[in-house]
């Protein structure tokens, strides 16, 4: 049994559990949307003193921060106890495409060329993560949600705005994949 758990899980288990988590939060009287935490953290750090957007009672959102803490713990439990340490089994086509960019085939979950500490603390590596994170934070608030809020909660509620946002996610993602990455690597 443990052996089975330690292998990567098929996509449908993940889809089922994500839907379950969304429904669970609805029954807790909340709604599933992760990126709101970024706004809450800004507010908790005192950003409300300088910018009105962060001037709200962030403690009312502390449930979502607890969810965030759980997500970190969940990652830790997976890494420590539920993993067989195998490389991500991505398709051969992707491996070949990435090799052309100079990114070696998976050895773990993340590429050394981006997430290895020696790569992350070169100027290029640092900027990739910093600017990548920056546009995620800026874009998520501008669009009013991220993958959880729009692609999962919003689409499940048949919201046209969420569909437009998801189209946007893909425009941006394809631009990075086919234009930015070949320029960077």
């Amino acid at each position: 049994m443990l052996e089975l758990i330690r292998q990567p899980w098929p996509w449908y288990t993940s889809g089922i559990v994500i839907a379950f988590v969304m429904v669970l939060l609805l029954f807790f009287g909340k709604s599933f949307g992760f990126s709101a935490n970024l706004r809450t953290i800004c507010s908790a750090c005192g950003a409300g003193k300088t910018v009105k957007f962060f001037d709200f009672d962030w403690r009312s959102q502390s449930w979502n921060l607890l969810f965030l803490v759980g997500a970190v713990i969940g990652g830790f439990i997976s890494a420590e106890f539920l993993s067989n340490g195998e490389a991500v089994q991505i398709s051969q086509a992707t491996i070949q495409d990435l090799q052309q960019l100079g990114i070696s085939s998976p050895d773990g979950i993340q590429p050394e060329e981006i997430f290895g500490l020696s790569a992350a603390f070169t100027l290029k590596g640092f900027l990739i993560l910093l600017l990548g994170g920056f546009s995620i934070g800026f874009g998520a608030r501008y669009a009013g949600g991220c993958t959880s809020g729009h692609a999962i909660s919003g689409l499940s509620n048949l919201q046209l705005p969420s569909l437009i946002a998801v189209v946007g996610f893909f425009i941006g993602g394809l631009l990075t994949t086919y234009v930015l990455l070949p320029l960077i690597f």
Binding site: G132, S135, F138, R141, A165, V167, G172, G173, L175
Partner: peptide
Amino acid sequence: YIIGGTIFGLGWALT
């Protein structure tokens, strides 16, 4: 949603 989503997607694929 289009502009915000696109900016988000740029970062999503990068990181």
